[in-house]
Design a protein around this nucleic acid. Structure first.
Lengths: 119, 119
DNA sequence: GTTACGCATCGACAAATGTCAATACGTGGG
DNA sequence: CCCACGTATTGACATTTGTCGATGCGTAAC
């Protein structure tokens, strides 16, 4: 049912059950959403997310990502860290390698939260 | 060609029959998408978009927006310009006032383009 | 025409960001 | 126990970004 009009600040509001919430987003939630979008505010990170998304089964490590984006290894590590911290990507260390998987539901959730405040 | 087995994604990416793309996003498109996300990479702009979205019928001018976000008028104008340039908002000048309307389809389109590259 | 008002632009400034070379850290193989 | 390798962190740098006060530009009211 989702009456729950007071749920606007809690993190979830559960994807489905897209809350009524024709209400302005608060400071805290704006902060939270902006972090997700900010992580994708750089073309390199958009490409990186796209790269690991396309090859989600053949998992990719950092060494596989540097060539496609044409940047140094430390720079790629730096960008990946930001994607991980934004929750857009998960990191799994196996042996010497770090494998990344996409978690784009975070993005769709953020987008829905923002667009659902549109009437 | 647009074989379109992936048209579950609603209206957009119609732009150019945007490829079924289980394919990496190119440099140019990454640039385009990142500009949209970057515009929402600041909590103030997220709140501004939310504000004008909630009151989409009772249109809002800049003078109505400064108080809720607690920033100066030049700063709000600056942020609104970025939202307009990202296509997330449309601006209409009427008399001395500038009225803004949300155009969040740009955001949903960008999100879908990126998430659809996930298999 | 002059005045008041809403908004945009400019100049300045501190803070954040993207990038790299150098280096440190951990893990696996010899 | 070292050594090689993949990755993360550090330090440094130029560029970008968010913010404000001051000022400029149109439009409406008198």
């Amino acid at each position: 049912m989702c009456t729950l009009q007071a749920l606007d600040t809690t993190e979830v509001r559960a994807s489905y059950c897209a809350a009524p919430t024709y209400q302005v987003i608060g400071d805290d939630e704006a902060q939270r959403l902006s972090k997700v979008f900010k992580a994708l505010g750089d073309p390199t990170r958009v490409r990186l997310l796209s790269l690991i998304s396309v090859s989600a089964n053949t998992e990719m490590c950092v060494c596989d990502l540097t060539a496609p984006v044409g940047l140094s290894q430390p720079t790629v590590s730096h960008h990946m860290k930001q994607l991980v911290e934004a929750g857009l990507v998960t990191r799994e260390q196996r042996g010497r390698w770090a494998y990344y998987s996409p978690a784009t539901s975070v993005l769709t959730a953020a987008t829905e939260t923002l667009t659902n405040s549109t009437r």
